[in-house]
Amino acid sequence: MAQSLENLYSILPAELDGWKKAESTATYDRSNLFDYIDGGAELYISYNFQRLLAVRYKGTGDEEIVIDIFDMGNSYDAFGVFSHGREREDGLVGQGSEYNAGLLTFWKDRFYVSILAYPETQAKKELVLSLGRKLADAVPKEGELPPVIGLLPRADLVPESIRYFHHHIWLNSHFFIANENILLIDDKTEAVLAKYKTDDKPVHLLVALYPDKATAKKAEQSFLQNYLPDASGGMAQLPDGRWTACRIRENRLAVVFNAPSRENALSYLDRIGARQPPEG
């Protein structure tokens, strides 16, 4: 069963519909990923990046398909890096995928894969999906999702809005909180951000698991001091009329933003980690 990058390379056909696999490949690790990705390596490194294999298929003229296979070390981070970039999920490949305008990204187990074929044509789209499925099929097992995701309340959750990360910069990518790391999120933190549908602006919910209770407490104090200095019982109404609230429990800190009422904010905090019916 193919599990290494080299094995995944070997299952890719030498030729497919007139496209030829380039004989030379390139591999990158944490020390030289910056050489390959112009300005983007930090994202992957923050998600526990281990190695990358870059494979190219050559078509007619200067056309090419670029396949980047990332070994992220574990399924949590493979999902995390996928969740960072996707706008929706189409379920076409692997454990989660998004195809859009010539770019396929998907994840399975500890691998995150990107296949780019631009400009898009219908034939190239089919080729990209075919290559993606070959790679996904070659990964023998599915990986676990980060457990912190299971703490999210299900009702009204926007599934494609789930972002898993352990660097505060990526929190700001999706929901700007502060230019400083006031929630003390680092590589030892398991954090998830998700959006919930309402009749008005969406509610955002952040749940972070810290390595211990003391760190979670420090994070709570930092957040209250820097963001909600006027909070009463961990809650405050902001000038736009919406409510922000936080609650700590053991090593877990949860913050709800943009809730339409005090009661609504509390309802999210109350439902975190509650036993939930299976998805269906």
Partner: peptide, 11 residues
């Protein structure tokens, strides 16, 4: 907006 390893998507 940029996504993907090369921070590029024609979308």
């Amino acid at each position: 907006h940029g996504v993907g390893p090369h921070n590029y998507n024609p979308k």
